[in-house]
Amino acid sequence: MRIYDFEGLPNPARVRIALAEKGITDKVEFITINVPNGEHRKPEFLTKNPTAAIPVLELDDGTTISECTAITEYLDHMFDGISLTGKTPKQRAIIHMMQRRGERNLLDAAVDYFHHATPGLGPELETYQNREWGEKQRERALSGMRYFNTVLSAQPYIAGDSFSMADITVFAGLAFADFAKIDIPLDLKNLRVWREHIAKRPSIAG
C-alpha cells in the first residue's frame, strides 16, 4: 500500500494516527506530495484524486481511495486491532455522526478560516478568498469547541466510552486551529483535559 500525503497537514495526520493505532505504519509506503509547491494540482496526481486533496491510499491492485473517513474505514476493517469505526451498528452510527461534526464544525471550519481570512498558502495557491465568510468559519470553529466541551462533560471520548475515529478528527481539528491561531477558550476545561489525555497516546506522542 502507498499513502500520498504531506506530513504535518491535518488530514494526512488523521490517517497517520489511524495507521499507528492499528499498528500497521510499517505496511505503508509514504509518498510526499508537496502541497505548498502545488504538486497536488499536477495532472499526474489528479489521475489519483481529481479533487486534488491529500491523503490518498493506493492499494497494490492500483485502486485509489481518498477521503480520511473512507481510508480509515478500509484500514479498520482490513486489519486487526483497536476498532476505530465501531463494532456494532449503534457504535458505527454514533462514531460517524460525531466524526462528521468534528470535521464540519471544527477541522474544516479552521481550515476554511485559514484559507479565506488569512494569507493562507499565498496568492499563487489561494486563487479565491472571501474574508467575511472565512471569519464566519472562525466563529463556527469556536462554536464547535464549545459543543465538544459539553459532550466531554458526560463521557471520556468524543463518541462515547472508547477512542475512535471521531477523537482523531477533533484532535486534528484542534491542532490546525492552533496553527491558524484560533485558541481554545480558557473556560473549556473538559476539552483541554481531553486534549492533554489524547496527546499522550503512543500514536500521537510518538
Score class of each variant (00 low, 15 high):
residue 61 D to A: 13
residue 102 G to W: 00
residue 113 Y to C: 08
residue 82 I to M: 15
residue 166 A to R: 00
residue 8 G to N: 03
residue 168 I to S: 01
residue 38 G to L: 15
residue 118 T to I: 11
residue 18 A to Q: 07
residue 61 D to W: 12
residue 140 R to N: 14
residue 175 A to K: 01
residue 32 T to V: 11
residue 22 K to C: 09
residue 115 H to C: 05
residue 178 D to I: 07
residue 75 L to W: 07
residue 141 A to Q: 11
residue 25 T to L: 10
residue 135 E to D: 01
residue 15 V to W: 06
residue 191 L to V: 04
residue 71 I to G: 02
residue 91 Q to A: 14
residue 115 H to S: 15
residue 79 F to V: 08
residue 150 T to K: 05
residue 14 R to A: 09
residue 197 H to N: 08
residue 31 I to F: 03
residue 3 I to C: 06
residue 56 V to Y: 02
residue 127 T to K: 07
residue 83 S to G: 14
residue 106 L to R: 00
residue 144 G to Y: 00
residue 16 R to G: 14
residue 42 K to M: 09
residue 145 M to Y: 03
residue 83 S to I: 10
residue 98 M to K: 00
residue 177 A to N: 04
residue 124 E to I: 10
residue 29 E to F: 12
residue 39 E to V: 09
residue 94 I to K: 05
residue 204 I to A: 03
residue 98 M to T: 00
residue 184 I to E: 10
residue 38 G to K: 03
residue 190 N to Y: 15
residue 129 Q to H: 15
residue 142 L to H: 00
residue 14 R to L: 04
residue 1 M to Q: 13
residue 37 N to P: 10
residue 203 S to D: 03
residue 64 T to Q: 06
residue 11 N to V: 05
residue 111 V to P: 01
residue 118 T to N: 12
residue 40 H to W: 09
residue 51 T to V: 11
residue 89 P to Q: 10
residue 157 Y to H: 06
residue 191 L to A: 00
residue 82 I to W: 06
residue 26 D to L: 13
residue 101 R to Y: 08
residue 87 K to I: 08
residue 78 M to Q: 11
residue 85 T to Y: 10
residue 159 A to F: 03
residue 10 P to K: 03
residue 173 G to I: 00
residue 204 I to D: 04
residue 145 M to G: 04
residue 172 A to Y: 02
residue 5 D to A: 06
residue 96 H to Q: 03
residue 204 I to E: 01
residue 56 V to M: 02
residue 36 P to W: 11
residue 126 E to N: 15
residue 86 G to I: 03
residue 52 A to M: 15
residue 172 A to S: 09
residue 205 A to I: 04
residue 77 H to P: 12
residue 4 Y to F: 11
residue 97 M to N: 01
residue 13 A to E: 11
residue 171 F to Q: 02
residue 150 T to E: 05
